[in-house]
Design a protein around this nucleic acid. Structure first.
Length: 1081
RNA sequence: CCGGAUGUGGUGAAAUUGGUAGACACGUCAGACUUAGGAUCUGAUGCCGCAAGGUGUGGGGGUUCGAGUCCCUCCAUCCGGACCA
């Protein structure tokens, strides 16, 4: 019996699938454990060896926890909305749904090859209506909520409305209101005015703001999608533009997002990144007065974290974008200021960042220092950002480097308030100095002065203590097609939410993916969708999701329509009823919804009425009806079915039931009745992070049609116990999903307010690129060692054609359809391989490639496909090798070579159980002490290492155990069976096979993790290292219970020790029990 | 510029609390079996040295009986944030 991994893996993957061993129940007496991977974006490129690293780690941990007796949730899904699919659609004309579907199928195939224990019944796809229905639902929850500052939590906005009704804007919660109003005024306001005011409070709100506009992509990007002034994807230039956008009021959660970091197990680096992004700073807002050219006074409010340095203010700087600049500019400075403003406008964000020139202009105005009355010149400069603080600063050149450089550049005199701490060469931002030249603060320590000044400022009524955040509200709309449509209808400039009954708002099919008019998204190009009432979703005909019954082509579709023209009596009767009775809504007849033609539908109320003929009683038809109802429900339609008899026998009963359904819908409708049908839909779609902000909740209850996730399910599974994914989502996804969780918690939908208990960041697997060197203008390629002797071009070659550094010359000549078939290769020793001469004789030409570590990418030809490795060595080998590479959280380059070692290990492990000659060789003999020791040592090591995610050392522990047991010639069931359980999380296929060969039934995952017993590994002696002056010189075997005196005597008597002592008496002997002995001479 | 992480053989890496540096592999070398070996097995393998021994965890300094591990400082690489007042 050989280790035939191919048939073993195929067999067990099949068995697992058929028996559903990875199905997880929400009901269990076991403790729960939730292991989550960051779900992938299904890109067209498929998986490379870097992707599965985290999945393998989580898979091992999930299996490990299951063996340890937990009910483990380990789901997987797809983050399927997003730009690349849309870009692909623009380039190739393939609908994103189609390419996404194909990519998912490919991903799934690749994932299945590796043998993961995902519960695929819980798969989610963010682009499915049954999923994004709830993304839209949560959006509405955000829309209908505001942040209550006194309670520091989100509440339904109706609470706020009640407060306004009673107290007007003077209520605590009204502070943010842009206008003040009394309760009477509020009650007298019309709908639109109220809605406008409430928009300033909603957690999902619409506003005009400077956004990152990317012309090339035709969309707005979030701050974290812009890198160095260009788009993260594609590297297109990004400019600031004022547009109407949706935002999430994440800034309200800044404090709680910071506080929550203390309660979760993230790496320090990750926490640091998040808190840097939030960027909390505390200080004060201080008002200075400015005398305008006209002679009156204008307030200039600045934000500073260092109010203690107020006597060191030598100038003020205002952001050029501020209107104030024009107001305060004096006549003689006007020309210069205008020139400067023009210059600033001409500069892109990118230029500003790239070249850090010191620029600015004096406005001619002076501000008055409120403490000593000093006149301070007011400048405008682009180094002050309009968006942060108040857009104006008090400049203290002796304490701030930017202010210092500015002062030097424009020759503004510098006041030193920190004495010897300032050297005149550079600013010193110390907080430790005693203040000088600082009026009433003289001699005071800076920290003390800071509080003192804030106190004085507040007393004078010219400012207040203030906390500021770098974080901005998150832009939440994209002028794009492939995303969740907003459940919003605009009416006369007011945004009205859809009724939750109307969800999901299905993404319609478009013909063109180009941008719409005036910076709107592609959806704006579909008037029949944009203008409500909604003329039924334009789902591709033939895309029916009940495979057997759908209409499969446009021809069939027309045919079906034709066939249905013969009405039954019942249909006629009902049609009269629906037309005549004052139901308040328009019904359509024989109208296509999704891929079906329904009997009657009110598009406005999303209500479908079906009349079933006698043939509906047969079972096949019933099944069809049920499936169809389910799908129509999924896309947000209610379906009522009547039989012919019901309609004909009691039409009034029927009518009442329909009325009832409609009024139920009406009751919860926020849209003023009668005004419907005049609005336009929001044409933006939600950004990529919308769907991923809550998917971890959906996994808990993926098929729930009535809720995003039942409270029972979320209470049972609670937080994600272990979340594994890359660092690239540090500030995006992780912050947004934390915010959503907090909102859902505040509103009482879930019982925990941090989504992830522990986060492990997997490192990136880099590519190891290979190069060949072509002699310029020829077909000659020279080996790496010779490249400096020629003028060469460096070309990437496919790393899969290179063994170590040696190029497979034949493969190279065939590469890329024979592009290099004429290549003449000069080997390291100067020998030449020409395509026209046989080189089988003598020695083969050794051509060595150059090598470099780069990001793994198709264009660099350094990607390695896991499928190839699984095919060659098996999934178990592949899994273990990925783990053996090094710690999960470290980035490292991929090198396929070492995989042989792991493969050899599995073969050797197999030979403990069976060999080719003798077949199955496991016996029932009693184990020896030595064997038990190996086993228990390994149980402890594997348990500890797995628990602390040290998978690489665990793999090596398996190797050690296998080597030792092979040396002991051990084939005993009592030792090997527990070992198989230990190895199961790492190499599940081979373990299942052995487990069943050993005569067990069922899956090895239902076995119990072996228990470590101290008694088997206890030693009575230890080989102590004996050091002289800290250097190990010899080793002595001593009893573990020997007393220090005994040890000292034995050690000093040792001949090696004697030799080093050279007759001298030792100064000291240090003995650490169980560790070492050190003799100090 | 700021913040974080990481620097250990030819390579990937171990060393969990300050206690035998280099486990486990890859590679390389030697050998066995073999018609053959890119299969399998055995042995060697940080560097210098025939050896005794010396030396060695990015460089320099420190604490300690003892430092890869702690402290100071400098250097390099990677990642993140960058005019945030």
């Amino acid at each position: 019996m050989e280790y035939n991994f191919r048939s073993i893996e195929k067999k067990w993957q099949q068995t697992w699938k058929e028996s559903g061993v990875y199905k997880v129940s929400n009901e269990s007496s076991k403790p729960k454990f939730y292991v989550l991977d960051m779900f992938p974006y299904p890109s067209g490129a498929g998986l490379h060896v870097g992707h599965p690293l985290g999945y393998i780690a989580s898979d091992i941990f999930a299996r490990f926890k299951r063996l340890k007796g937990y009910n483990v949730l380990h789901p997987m899904g797809y983050d399927a909305f997003g730009l690349p699919a849309e870009q692909y659609a623009i380039d190739h004309g393939v609908h994103p749904a189609v390419s996404t579907e194909a990519n998912i199928a490919n991903f799934r195939q690749q994932l299945d090859n590796i043998g993961f224990c995902f519960d695929w019944d819980r798969e989610v796809r963010t682009c499915e209506p049954s999923y994004y229905k709830w993304t839209q639902w949560i959006f509405l929850e955000l829309f209908h909520a505001y942040f209550d500052h006194s309670d520091q939590k989100a509440k339904p906005i109706s609470f706020l409305e009640k407060e306004f009704e009673k107290f007007g804007s003077s209520s605590v919660n009204g502070k943010r209101s842009p206008v003040t109003f009394t309760a009477q005024e509020w009650n007298a306001y019309d709908e639109k005015t109220r809605m406008d005011i409430l928009m300033n409070f909603r957690l999902a709100y619409c506003g005009y703001g400077e956004v990152n506009w990317c012309e090339a992509l035709g969309t707005v990007l979030a701050n974290d999608e812009v890198v160095n002034g260009v788009s993260e994807r594609g590297g297109h230039p990004v400019v600031k533009k004022k547009l109407r956008q949706w935002y999430l009021r994440i800034t309200e959660y800044a404090d709680r997002l910071l506080e929550g970091l203390e309660r979760i197990d993230f790496s320090d680096a990750m926490k640091e990144m998040q808190s840097n992004w939030i960027g909390k700073s505390s200080g004060a807002e201080i008002q200075f007065d400015i005398e305008t050219p006209a002679g009156d006074k204008l307030p200039l409010v600045v934000y500073t974290t260092r109010p203690d340095t107020i006597f060191g203010v030598d100038f003020m700087v205002v952001a050029p974008e501020l209107d104030l600049v024009e107001k305060i500019t004096t006549a003689d400075q006007k020309k210069k200021v205008d020139e400067y403003l023009t210059y600033v406008k001409s500069r892109s964000e990118r230029e500003r960042m790239a070249e850090k020139k010191i620029t600015g202009v004096f406005t001619g105005a002076y501000a008055i220092n409120p403490f000593d009355g000093r006149k301070i010149p007011v400048w405008a400069s682009e180094y002050v950002l309009a968006g942060y603080g108040t857009g104006a600063i008090m400049a203290v050149p002796c304490g701030d480097q930017r202010d210092f450089l500015f002062a030097k550049h424009f020759e503004i005199p510098i006041t030193n308030i920190i004495g010897e701490h300032y050297n005149g060469e550079e600013a010193n931002p110390t907080k430790e100095a005693k203040l000088e030249n600082s009026g009433f603060l003289n001699g005071m320590a800076m920290r003390e002065a800071l509080e003192k000044v804030i106190g004085e400022v507040e007393k004078k009524g010219i400012g207040r203590r203030k906390v500021n955040f770098k974080m901005r509200d998150a832009a939440f709309s994209r002028q794009r097609y492939w995303g969740e449509p907003f459940p919003i209808v605009w009416q006369d400039g007011t945004a009205y939410p859809l009724n939750q009954k109307e969800l999901p708002l299905i993404l319609p099919k478009v013909e063109k993916y180009g941008p719409g008019p005036e910076g709107e998204g592609p959806l704006a190009n579909i008037p029949e969708w944009i203008l409500i009432p909604n003329p039924s979703p334009q789902v591709e005909k033939g895309a029916a999701r009940v495979p057997k019954y759908g209409i499969k082509s446009p021809v069939q579709y027309e045919l079906a329509k034709e066939l249905r023209k013969g009405h039954t009596d019942a249909e006629k009767k009902l049609w009269e009823l629906l037309r005549d009775s004052k139901l308040g809504t328009k019904f359509r007849r024989q109208h296509p919804i999704d891929a079906y033609i329904v009997d009657f539908v009110s598009l406005q109320e999303r209500l479908i009425i079906e009349v079933d003929g006698g043939y509906h009683n047969n079972s096949e038809q019933t099944e069809y009806d049920n499936q169809r109802t389910k799908i129509l429900n999924e896309i947000g339609f209610d379906v009522i079915r009547f039989t012919n008899e019901e309609v004909l026998s009691d039409p009034y009963k029927i009518k009442n039931r329909i009325k009832e359904s409609i009024s139920r819908i009406k009751d919860t409708s926020p849209l003023p009745s009668g005004e419907r049908g005049q609005g336009v839909r929001e044409s933006s779609t939600m950004p990529g992070y919308a769907g991923s902000s809550w998917y971890f909740l959906r996994y808990m209850d993926p098929h729930n049609e009535n809720e995003f996730c039942s409270r029972k399910a979320s209470d049972y599974w609670g937080q994600v116990d272990l979340y594994i994914g890359g660092t690239e989502h540090a500030v995006g996804h992780l912050l947004y999903s934390r915010m959503w969780t907090k909102v859902l918690y505040d509103l009482g939908h879930i019982g925990h307010d941090e989504p992830y208990k522990k986060l492990v960041n997997q490192g990136m697997i880099q590519g190891s690129s290979r190069f060949v060197y072509r002699v310029r203008g020829t077909h000659q390629f020279v080996s790496a060692g010779l490249k400096d002797q020629y003028e060469t071009d460096t070309l990437h070659v496919d790393v899969n054609m290179v063994d170590g550094l040696e190029l497979n010359i034949d493969a190279f000549r065939k590469w890329r359809n024979g592009e290099y078939k004429d290549a003449e290769l000069i080997g390291e020793d100067g020998s030449i391989s020409s395509p026209h001469t046989a080189n089988g004789e003598g020695h083969a030409v050794r051509y060595l490639c150059g090598a470099e570590v780069e990001k793994m990418s198709k264009s660099k030809f350094n990607t390695v496909n896991p499928d190839d490795l699984v095919q060659r060595y098996g999934a178990d080998t592949f899994r273990m090798y990925e783990m053996f590479l090094g710690p999960v959280e470290i980035s490292k380059p991929w090198d396929t070579k070492g995989i042989e070692g792991v493969h050899r290990f599995l073969k050797k492990f197999w030979r403990l159980f069976a060999t080719e000659e003798k077949g199955w060789i496991v016996n029932e003999q009693a184990p020896t002490d030595a064997e038990l020791k190996v086993l228990h040592k390994t149980i402890r090591k594997i348990g500890d290492d797995t628990e602390r995610f040290s998978f690489n050392t665990a793999v090596s522990a398996f190797m050690i155990a296998t080597n030792e047991l092979a040396d002991l010639n051990c084939h005993k069931k009592a030792i090997l069976e527990p070992l198989v359980i230990l190895l199961t999380p790492y190499a599940p296929h081979i373990c299942e096979e052995i487990w069943s060969q050993m005569g067990n039934s069922g899956t090895v995952l239902d076995a119990t993790f072996p228990v470590f017993e101290e008694k088997y590994v206890k030693e009575s002696t230890k080989d102590y290292p004996v050091a002289i002056n800290g250097k190990t010189r010899t080793e002595m075997t001593l009893a573990l219970d020997a007393s220090p005196q005994e040890v000292e005597a034995l050690v000093l008597a040792n001949e090696v020790v004697q030799k080093w002592l050279e007759g001298k008496a030792p100064k000291k002997v240090i003995f650490v029990k169980g560790k070492m002995v050190n003799v100090v001479v």
